[in-house]
Design a protein around this nucleic acid. Structure first.
Lengths: 184, 184
DNA sequence: CTGGGTGTTGGATGGTTATCCAACTCACCA
DNA sequence: TGGTGAGTTGGATAACCATCCAACACCCAG
């Protein structure tokens, strides 16, 4: 049963293409070529483009679960949030070049509506709630608003630095977010 | 020469559809139906979809020029930035429902590359520079970084509040941006 | 060896899309 | 009045796309 291998190859290829080209610009033919899996065979694993997108979202959700577990290795909630920030900063190049892989997909799917959009949104919501929890553990007032602010700031920096195509500005702005975090 | 009328109708229709459905999801047929201009006739005015998009970007640039002039009615640079913020807050519903009309288009075009992306990016850059100028006039250190931060925060709030589909959170977060602005 | 099931494949299909065109309207002027 | 050209129109076209399928390869149980 080496199908797992192929399934994963398809998911990772699709995730990468969705990130770089966007969901709508990416065709099954693109996925076929990039993954080396013939188009006819892709369909054996994922009956529709939506199914493939759902699998990509699931994969990312699983990835975030793992990441959150890693960030929770830090004892202090503030340090956990800093870990997240560091993870983001580590992905600087890809983020500046193509935007947030998840935010972008989410935004695109939102314009379609439907269950896929909800699924993507739920993943983002979980991330916001996780950061709100950290702020709550820090004993701060209005932790939910702080959580939203934290995520919004990171997303905003990714978007604007992407438009400016300026990795230096990206880092500078993320440092500002870190300074804000440390000042709370 | 009532062609101006039709040209504008096409631009506004396209701008609206690009905002609500996204650029790629919007077809010439959509624009034709929504504007009441037959497809064959659209082509008389705009030879390609890219031409239409360029016209939309130009129209938005012109709109921002007017808006900036209005915001500059305020004498204090801080008040000018507040005017911008108020303009954004006034568009709450549309922004939460469909994202930033310009940021979204910019992001989508960036994934295509090409001169259209540069054109869109330039408009955003001008907005950032304008806000940097206000921070400079306030005598603050590192006005450029502040300008980027201001725009990034607004964009981030629009994006995240859109994903959460929460107009209340949108307003709450924008109030936080205003508080930050007032604290500088 | 053999039948059936799991995978695999290239190409077919039906619908959509941007783009283009040949013919038409009609106001204006020589 | 006949000609001219800007503006208009529905439909043609060629490409592309997600989806589907009929046939094929391979493997293991009987």
């Amino acid at each position: 049963m080496p199908m797992t291998d192929k399934r994963e190859r398809l998911i990772y290829t699709a995730a990468d293409l969705f990130h770089r080209q966007g969901y709508h610009r990416t065709t099954f033919a693109d996925v076929a070529e990039a993954s080396g899996v013939p188009m006819g065979n892709i369909y054996y694993y994922y009956k529709t483009k939506g199914d493939l997108a759902a699998a990509v979202i699931d994969q990312r959700e699983a990835e975030y679960v793992k990441l959150r577990a890693a960030w929770e290795g830090a004892l202090e909630p503030r340090a956990r949030l800093r870990s997240w920030l560091d993870t983001i900063i580590g992905g600087c190049d890809g983020l500046v070049a193509h935007g947030c892989p998840f935010g972008g997909l989410s935004h695109e799917l939102d314009k379609e509506g439907g269950p896929l959009a909800d699924k993507a949104d739920a993943t983002t919501t979980r991330l916001i709630e996780w950061s709100a929890k950290q702020f709550r553990q820090m004993g701060l007032k209005d932790p939910h608003a702080l959580g939203v602010e934290f995520v919004a700031r990171m997303q905003g920096v990714i978007l604007v630095a992407g438009i400016m195509r300026d990795a230096g500005e990206f880092r500078r702005q993320m440092d500002r977010v870190r300074a804000w975090l440390d000042s709370l």
